Amino acid sequence: MARPRNQAARREQLVAAATRAVRRHGLHQVRVADIADEAGVARGSVHYYFRDLDELLRSVYQQAGERFYTARMTAAAALPDARDKLVESIEHGLPDGPDDELAVVLYEFSMVRDDPVFSALSQSLYDRQVAMYAAILEVGASQGHFTMAAPVLDVAANLVALEDAYGLHIVSRNASLPRERTLDLLLSYARIATRCEDLRRSG
Protein backbone atom coordinates (compact mmCIF):
# COMPACT_ATOMS: atom_id res chain seq x y z
CA MET A 1 0.00 0.00 0.00
CA ALA A 2 1.38 3.38 -0.94
CA ARG A 3 1.88 5.75 1.94
CA PRO A 4 -1.08 8.17 1.90
CA ARG A 5 -0.43 11.86 1.98
CA ASN A 6 -2.91 12.30 4.78
CA GLN A 7 -1.86 9.96 7.56
CA ALA A 8 -4.59 11.26 9.85
CA ALA A 9 -7.21 10.20 7.31
CA ARG A 10 -5.72 6.69 7.09
CA ARG A 11 -5.69 6.37 10.86
CA GLU A 12 -9.33 7.46 10.98
CA GLN A 13 -10.15 4.85 8.35
CA LEU A 14 -8.51 2.14 10.45
CA VAL A 15 -10.27 3.29 13.62
CA ALA A 16 -13.60 3.08 11.78
CA ALA A 17 -12.70 -0.38 10.51
CA ALA A 18 -11.71 -1.45 14.03
CA THR A 19 -15.07 -0.21 15.33
CA ARG A 20 -16.89 -2.37 12.78
CA ALA A 21 -14.65 -5.34 13.50
CA VAL A 22 -15.21 -5.14 17.26
CA ARG A 23 -18.94 -5.02 16.71
CA ARG A 24 -18.80 -8.01 14.36
CA HIS A 25 -16.38 -10.23 16.30
CA GLY A 26 -16.50 -8.93 19.87
CA LEU A 27 -13.73 -7.13 21.73
CA HIS A 28 -12.02 -10.27 23.02
CA GLN A 29 -12.08 -12.11 19.70
CA VAL A 30 -11.14 -9.33 17.28
CA ARG A 31 -7.75 -9.64 15.56
CA VAL A 32 -5.59 -7.34 13.50
CA ALA A 33 -6.48 -9.48 10.48
CA ASP A 34 -10.20 -8.79 11.05
CA ILE A 35 -9.54 -5.05 11.13
CA ALA A 36 -7.38 -5.22 8.02
CA ASP A 37 -10.16 -7.10 6.22
CA GLU A 38 -12.71 -4.47 7.24
CA ALA A 39 -10.43 -1.70 5.98
CA GLY A 40 -9.49 -3.56 2.81
CA VAL A 41 -5.76 -3.34 3.53
CA ALA A 42 -2.93 -5.73 4.37
CA ARG A 43 -2.20 -6.51 8.03
CA GLY A 44 1.15 -4.79 7.74
CA SER A 45 -0.65 -1.55 6.91
CA VAL A 46 -2.43 -1.65 10.27
CA HIS A 47 0.89 -2.02 12.08
CA TYR A 48 2.33 0.84 10.07
CA TYR A 49 -0.11 3.28 11.67
CA PHE A 50 -0.61 1.64 15.06
CA ARG A 51 2.04 0.04 17.21
CA ASP A 52 -0.22 -2.84 18.24
CA LEU A 53 -3.86 -3.87 18.57
CA ASP A 54 -4.22 -2.26 22.00
CA GLU A 55 -3.19 1.14 20.67
CA LEU A 56 -5.78 0.87 17.89
CA LEU A 57 -8.50 -0.22 20.30
CA ARG A 58 -7.66 2.68 22.61
CA SER A 59 -8.22 4.98 19.64
CA VAL A 60 -11.65 3.40 19.10
CA TYR A 61 -12.53 4.07 22.73
CA GLN A 62 -11.27 7.63 22.55
CA GLN A 63 -13.47 8.22 19.49
CA ALA A 64 -16.45 7.19 21.58
CA GLY A 65 -15.32 9.66 24.23
CA GLU A 66 -15.22 12.41 21.64
CA ARG A 67 -18.82 11.71 20.74
CA PHE A 68 -20.32 11.23 24.18
CA TYR A 69 -18.33 13.95 25.90
CA THR A 70 -16.54 16.46 23.70
CA ALA A 71 -19.12 16.74 20.93
CA ARG A 72 -22.12 17.21 23.18
CA MET A 73 -20.28 19.51 25.56
CA THR A 74 -19.44 21.70 22.57
CA ALA A 75 -23.06 21.64 21.39
CA ALA A 76 -24.36 22.53 24.86
CA ALA A 77 -21.82 25.33 25.24
CA ALA A 78 -23.41 27.15 22.30
CA LEU A 79 -26.74 27.39 24.13
CA PRO A 80 -27.10 30.23 26.67
CA ASP A 81 -30.04 28.77 28.63
CA ALA A 82 -29.13 25.93 31.00
CA ARG A 83 -32.49 24.26 30.37
CA ASP A 84 -31.60 23.91 26.70
CA LYS A 85 -28.09 22.79 27.62
CA LEU A 86 -29.43 20.00 29.81
CA VAL A 87 -31.99 18.74 27.31
CA GLU A 88 -29.40 18.84 24.52
CA SER A 89 -26.93 16.86 26.59
CA ILE A 90 -29.47 14.25 27.61
CA GLU A 91 -30.76 13.80 24.07
CA HIS A 92 -27.25 13.21 22.72
CA GLY A 93 -26.12 10.96 25.55
CA LEU A 94 -28.18 7.99 24.39
CA PRO A 95 -27.49 5.63 21.46
CA ASP A 96 -29.33 6.56 18.28
CA GLY A 97 -30.85 3.09 18.23
CA PRO A 98 -29.95 -0.60 18.49
CA ASP A 99 -27.66 -0.36 15.46
CA ASP A 100 -25.63 2.57 16.78
CA GLU A 101 -22.24 1.06 16.05
CA LEU A 102 -20.10 3.27 18.26
CA ALA A 103 -22.43 2.84 21.24
CA VAL A 104 -22.50 -0.94 20.82
CA VAL A 105 -18.70 -1.02 20.81
CA LEU A 106 -18.52 1.24 23.85
CA TYR A 107 -20.55 -1.33 25.81
CA GLU A 108 -18.09 -3.99 24.67
CA PHE A 109 -15.35 -1.98 26.34
CA SER A 110 -17.39 -1.60 29.52
CA MET A 111 -17.04 -5.36 30.09
CA VAL A 112 -13.24 -5.19 30.25
CA ARG A 113 -12.31 -5.66 33.90
CA ASP A 114 -8.68 -6.74 33.95
CA ASP A 115 -7.03 -4.11 31.78
CA PRO A 116 -5.82 -1.08 33.79
CA VAL A 117 -5.55 1.09 30.66
CA PHE A 118 -9.17 0.57 29.62
CA SER A 119 -10.32 0.87 33.24
CA ALA A 120 -8.61 4.25 33.44
CA LEU A 121 -10.15 5.35 30.14
CA SER A 122 -13.61 4.27 31.32
CA GLN A 123 -13.28 6.14 34.59
CA SER A 124 -12.00 9.22 32.80
CA LEU A 125 -14.98 9.25 30.43
CA TYR A 126 -17.39 8.80 33.34
CA ASP A 127 -15.75 11.55 35.42
CA ARG A 128 -15.77 14.00 32.50
CA GLN A 129 -19.44 13.36 31.80
CA VAL A 130 -20.33 13.86 35.46
CA ALA A 131 -18.37 17.11 35.46
CA MET A 132 -20.18 18.22 32.29
CA TYR A 133 -23.58 17.66 33.84
CA ALA A 134 -22.55 19.24 37.13
CA ALA A 135 -21.45 22.40 35.32
CA ILE A 136 -24.79 22.62 33.47
CA LEU A 137 -26.75 22.11 36.67
CA GLU A 138 -24.78 24.83 38.45
CA VAL A 139 -25.42 27.24 35.58
CA GLY A 140 -29.12 26.40 35.72
CA ALA A 141 -29.20 27.09 39.45
CA SER A 142 -27.41 30.40 39.01
CA GLN A 143 -29.85 31.38 36.24
CA GLY A 144 -32.74 30.66 38.60
CA HIS A 145 -34.13 27.77 36.54
CA PHE A 146 -33.06 24.86 38.74
CA THR A 147 -33.73 24.25 42.43
CA MET A 148 -31.77 21.13 43.17
CA ALA A 149 -33.51 18.31 45.04
CA ALA A 150 -30.13 16.68 45.79
CA PRO A 151 -26.46 17.67 45.68
CA VAL A 152 -25.36 18.65 42.19
CA LEU A 153 -22.74 15.91 41.92
CA ASP A 154 -25.27 13.26 42.96
CA VAL A 155 -27.72 14.37 40.27
CA ALA A 156 -24.95 14.51 37.67
CA ALA A 157 -23.75 11.01 38.59
CA ASN A 158 -27.30 9.67 38.37
CA LEU A 159 -27.79 11.20 34.94
CA VAL A 160 -24.65 9.49 33.63
CA ALA A 161 -25.55 6.16 35.25
CA LEU A 162 -29.08 6.30 33.86
CA GLU A 163 -27.74 7.06 30.39
CA ASP A 164 -25.45 4.06 30.60
CA ALA A 165 -28.17 1.74 31.86
CA TYR A 166 -30.86 2.84 29.42
CA GLY A 167 -28.38 2.87 26.56
CA LEU A 168 -27.63 -0.80 27.18
CA HIS A 169 -31.34 -1.58 26.88
CA ILE A 170 -31.48 0.33 23.60
CA VAL A 171 -28.58 -1.53 21.97
CA SER A 172 -29.91 -4.82 23.38
CA ARG A 173 -33.16 -4.24 21.47
CA ASN A 174 -35.34 -4.23 24.56
CA ALA A 175 -38.76 -3.52 23.05
CA SER A 176 -40.01 -2.19 26.38
CA LEU A 177 -37.35 0.53 26.42
CA PRO A 178 -36.92 2.05 22.96
CA ARG A 179 -34.92 5.25 22.65
CA GLU A 180 -37.89 7.64 22.88
CA ARG A 181 -39.14 5.95 26.06
CA THR A 182 -35.73 6.08 27.72
CA LEU A 183 -35.35 9.73 26.75
CA ASP A 184 -38.68 10.52 28.39
CA LEU A 185 -37.62 8.68 31.53
CA LEU A 186 -34.30 10.54 31.71
CA LEU A 187 -36.00 13.89 31.27
CA SER A 188 -38.56 12.92 33.92
CA TYR A 189 -35.75 12.29 36.39
CA ALA A 190 -34.10 15.57 35.40
CA ARG A 191 -37.34 17.47 36.06
CA ILE A 192 -37.67 15.90 39.50
CA ALA A 193 -34.01 16.47 40.39
CA THR A 194 -34.00 20.12 39.29
CA ARG A 195 -37.62 20.94 40.15
CA CYS A 196 -37.89 22.38 36.64
CA GLU A 197 -40.88 21.41 34.52
CA ASP A 198 -39.43 23.05 31.40
CA LEU A 199 -37.17 20.11 30.57
CA ARG A 200 -38.97 18.56 27.61
CA ARG A 201 -37.90 16.93 24.37
CA SER A 202 -36.85 19.49 21.80
CA GLY A 203 -38.29 17.64 18.81
Results as ranks from 00 to 15, higher is better:
5 R>S: 10
6 N>C: 11
6 N>F: 11
8 A>F: 13
9 A>R: 15
10 R>Y: 02
12 E>C: 13
13 Q>Y: 03
13 Q>V: 04
17 A>S: 13
18 A>Q: 06
19 T>V: 13
22 V>D: 06
22 V>P: 01
23 R>V: 10
23 R>D: 15
25 H>M: 11
25 H>G: 03
26 G>E: 11
28 H>L: 15
28 H>T: 12
29 Q>F: 14
29 Q>W: 15
31 R>H: 05
32 V>G: 14
34 D>M: 14
34 D>C: 09
34 D>G: 11
38 E>S: 14
41 V>W: 02
43 R>D: 15
43 R>G: 15
44 G>D: 11
45 S>W: 02
46 V>I: 15
47 H>G: 06
49 Y>E: 08
49 Y>M: 07
51 R>Q: 10
51 R>C: 10
51 R>S: 15
55 E>D: 14
56 L>W: 02
58 R>T: 07
58 R>M: 15
58 R>S: 08
61 Y>D: 01
64 A>M: 10
65 G>R: 04
65 G>Y: 07
66 E>K: 06
68 F>S: 04
69 Y>M: 08
71 A>L: 06
73 M>D: 12
75 A>E: 08
77 A>K: 06
79 L>P: 04
79 L>A: 03
80 P>G: 01
82 A>L: 02
84 D>W: 05
87 V>S: 01
88 E>P: 04
88 E>F: 09
89 S>E: 07
90 I>G: 02
92 H>Q: 02
93 G>D: 00
94 L>Q: 01
95 P>N: 08
96 D>W: 12
96 D>P: 00
97 G>W: 03
98 P>L: 01
99 D>G: 00
100 D>P: 05
101 E>R: 12
103 A>H: 09
103 A>G: 03
109 F>G: 14
111 M>S: 15
112 V>S: 07
113 R>G: 13
116 P>S: 07
116 P>M: 04
117 V>T: 11
122 S>N: 00
123 Q>A: 13
123 Q>F: 03
126 Y>K: 00
127 D>S: 00
128 R>Y: 11
130 V>R: 09
133 Y>Q: 04
135 A>H: 09
138 E>D: 14
138 E>T: 07
140 G>I: 06
141 A>L: 03
143 Q>N: 04
143 Q>I: 01
144 G>Y: 02
145 H>M: 05
147 T>G: 10
147 T>W: 14
149 A>E: 08
149 A>R: 10
150 A>T: 03
151 P>T: 11
151 P>A: 01
153 L>S: 15
156 A>W: 13
157 A>C: 09
157 A>Q: 10
158 N>C: 11
159 L>P: 03
163 E>T: 15
164 D>C: 08
165 A>Q: 06
166 Y>D: 06
167 G>H: 01
171 V>K: 00
171 V>I: 15
172 S>A: 07
173 R>L: 12
174 N>M: 09
176 S>V: 07
177 L>I: 14
177 L>P: 07
180 E>G: 01
182 T>L: 03
182 T>Y: 03
185 L>T: 00
185 L>N: 02
187 L>Q: 02
191 R>N: 00
192 I>T: 10
193 A>Y: 10
196 C>D: 10
198 D>Y: 04
200 R>Y: 02
200 R>K: 05
201 R>P: 05
201 R>Y: 02
202 S>P: 05
202 S>L: 00
203 G>W: 10
